[in-house]
Amino acid sequence: MSAVKPDSDRRRKWKNEPLVLFVEGYSDLTFYAELMKHIGLHDRCFIQDLGGKGHELLREQARALLTPDRLAQICAVGVLLDADKDADGAFSLARNALKGAVDVDVPRRGEWVRASDSKVRYGVFIVGDGDKQVEVESLAWAAWSGKPDNAAFRGCVEDFIKCARKQGKKLKSTDKVRIGAVLSVLNEDDPRLGPGARRHLFEFEAAAFAELRAFLKAMATEARDGGPPGR
């Protein structure tokens, strides 16, 4: 590894926030930050991005961040990973990483469990299920394309996808390309997911976000109430 310098885009550091989220990359961070604003938890939440290497870095970054003195001030730690065609694999990875970093077992995804020797609760949410290519862009696409007002433009985007495929272009992630196309038109200056969310292009109350919203709300509600874990 070459000499390390912190990415200037990721300057924010943990400052006594009681809620901590680990997300895959900076793009996810900006998007989830908007979602947390939407549900009123942004001020209490610190989001740590894993530099686009969520699968490799989660354990070590969790070890580095979740020190005993910080954990004494933290109520809940959540991990949000994309399924990426293997939801079970993504969950196992997050589960093992938390086990290795803080010795806590999170047996099921989407649920919060309390560490046996502290007040801190841990949860893992995998975006998507089964073996389809699903990521946070899939939720954003579902939310955006499901809105009747966007039906016509949706047709344009689907035509674009069909056309690209006809040209022999292989798409690794169709939803990512769809959202990219939408954002490149609707938020031309900064066609990234987070800035798009900041401009309210995605309806966070849409059904596509329901499970994720519930997971994140539960993180805080139970942290405040000290109630039992659950969704």
Binding site: M1, V4, P6, D7, R10, R11, R12, K13, W14, Q48, D49, L50, G51, L57, E60, Q61, R63, A64, L65
Partner: peptide, 8 residues
């Protein structure tokens, strides 16, 4: 490395 790379 994880700490410095993650700006922790």
């Amino acid at each position: 490395e994880a700490g410095i790379g993650g700006n922790i």
